[in-house]
Design a protein around this nucleic acid. Structure first.
Lengths: 217, 217, 217, 217
DNA sequence: AATGAATGAGAATTCATTCAT
DNA sequence: TATGAATGAATTCTCATTCAT
């Protein structure tokens, strides 16, 4: 009992926090409940984390690391852009289901009681993908994989917008309902359909001008 | 002073509520503060609205009506799809700035303390646009304005996803920061650039196959 | 609308009040609800009654008058004491069911939020019966109808105690349950049994010593 | 100060609650005031008791236990019924003065804002005495101590009715005034008089028929 | 005279944080 | 070092009473 908390224990505490914050938000979550669920005393939680907000931020950091690992694995590679795009789309659907708590916690930052951290965290969270996407669009433009008449950062932004909404659609109640409204309740039985159509959408958005060029325009 | 509250006063109260809920969320907002800001007593607020939740829902309804009016004006018309799409994009950017509180309140429903109403409200809110978009994509397909190899509902969904993220990007802190990360701080000085690029993105997504066909494929 | 409230209307208002006060007590009852149920405006209620407490007291007064009428009818007469006692017992059971609201309102005065009026009202309410009972016990003693070795006021008290508990047993939830606990659930199907046994109890209490004397002790 | 509340402290809190509930009733009593009077923080009260109602019920339970102990001591014994009856009467007068708060709290359950618990608590509270009384009447009947032509449960009920009213008469304002109305203000100076007369009343009620039989009727 | 909209004090309950043990 | 009992500020909602119309 006089030993420092192991790293595994810390992770366990953070995961408990993530679960709770994802469900109830920063203000709604109960620190005492989190401590109890994590099997530790309140005192020890306050030993490791200054206060509720610091603990929340630590939870966000933890989820970010986990997500970054997933993302890195997917965005790596030298395939053509559309092949990689499809890989990314697949990965997004998968981890949105698997790690829905993480996604819900980000949502909380965007609009819940932890909104105050939004400016701070937006940079930290989004920088991760922004550069990756913009870079591989730029490279694709150079190697004639996609059209050249576009602003790569802007297109990276639109691309990530589509992925972000996909995330939400597979992890949070509101957007799940929204997807059903748009595409019918059966849409959740056929992920491939969604993937195919989204790839189609993105492919043409990325290659349109090129194809015109190819046809002599 | 004993006159029933006028409709204008009711609207004023609702707008005060919207402002507060947009800022603090359902749980975070303080009913007493809202009453004071609206220049009424707590009692009168409770005379008109059963409780905090009912009042919140009334605020959502109010914002929905206002937004629906804007949307109806924009989606009306018989122009070709891309002309209308551009009009919509312009409108979205405009009202996202103008009515940012409304958008922030929707965000709250998606992920804040009012999450519990998400399933209920998702249908109500999204049905508004879902049918409009799917319909005009279908019509455009019939009149050869756009490619025919797509699922109109799915493309309506992707289209609305891009618009939704645009909304967020012009109305809430997190996404404003995110847009800066992707496209630079100057992006907010040049709305036309964003509009042009997004139209480009959507145009090709919508017309790609058709253009191929046009070119003899 | 410009006419004074008729006496019937006043009575209707008071009866509505009695119903509400019997159910919820002085503090628990809602004046605005009483006005609505009586079909009048709050303003008119406050025109006729100073405030909630005055209105409550008026309701008590009204119920007292009604009960007094019933009681007078029963206690009148020149029959022997035991005949009259049985008549009273029957009457008590009858009106405890018929006017249970009145009884419940008295209970409220004894122990509810209107307790503060207890000393005041006890005298007013109990004087009614106390003298009647003590008087007819004294007269019965003089005419050799009952034993002579008793304190008539004390026995009047015990007699009324039995009647009071009978009242409660037929009008209020707690004592109804209590009667069931003591005598079984079927006791409410056979009022005659209760009457017979209570008459038996009282008869012997009243005549015991006399009967001994009659037998030469 | 971080020790768990001792049992004595818990009892002290409950007694403070009893005092307050006896005076003001369930709704009228103020939890924050009770906490202050008990010398604890509101939080700790809510740590030990779910909410106001649960705390109230705990207070009732506590008083019940205390009263049960008194009662057990008195109803024990093998003396003849009338000896025991007198002992009980004495005890009732004693504890009605000593523990008037308990009695007042029961009154509150019968007719105050805690009425809703009446059916539940009536059984719990009354079962305690009902069986005891009925049993010793039955035994007395078997051993020729009292008349045989009576329903023991019914007579137990009447007996307890007299005791209950005695309780009220010595513990609550309304019934104290009532007793004065019936027997004069001096009655409270001479408990023996009351005891004697009540024993007389009960003795004859219990033995009347037997005495008649004894005399050959 | 009659109306009933408006007022606002007051009370139950929650939970982040402290700190004696 | 770890514990978790205790604290108490802060917030929602109710309803008796007023008084402009």
């Amino acid at each position: 009992m006089l030993k420092k908390l192991t790293d595994e224990k810390i992770v366990e505490i953070l995961e408990t926090g993530i679960t709770e914050f994802a469900k109830k938000g920063l203000d709604g979550a109960n620190i005492n409940v989190i401590a109890k669920n994590a099997g530790i005393s309140i005192g020890v939680l306050y030993k490791y984390f200054e206060n509720k907000e610091e603990f929340f931020l630590a939870c966000v950091k933890r989820s970010l690391e986990a997500l970054e690992a997933v993302l890195k694995e997917v965005t790596n590679g030298e395939e053509k852009i559309l092949v990689r795009a499809e890989k990314i789309i697949r990965a997004v659907i998968y981890y949105s289901k698997e790690y829905s708590d993480y996604i819900n916690m980000y949502q909380e930052i965007m609009s819940g009681s932890s909104k105050k951290f939004a400016p701070l965290l937006a940079v930290e969270i989004e920088s991760m993908t922004a550069k990756t996407y913009a870079d591989f669009i730029k490279k694709a433009m150079e190697s004639d994989d996609i059209r050249k008449d576009i602003d790569p950062r802007m297109f990276a932004f639109f691309f990530d917008n589509l992925l972000t909404m996909l995330q939400f659609s597979y992890s949070c109640d509101y957007h799940r309902e929204r997807l059903k409204v748009y595409c019918g309740v059966d849409v959740f039985d056929d992920d491939e359909k969604v993937i195919t159509e989204l790839v189609k959408f993105i492919e043409s958005a990325f290659t349109f001008a090129q194809s015109e060029v190819a046809h002599g325009k």
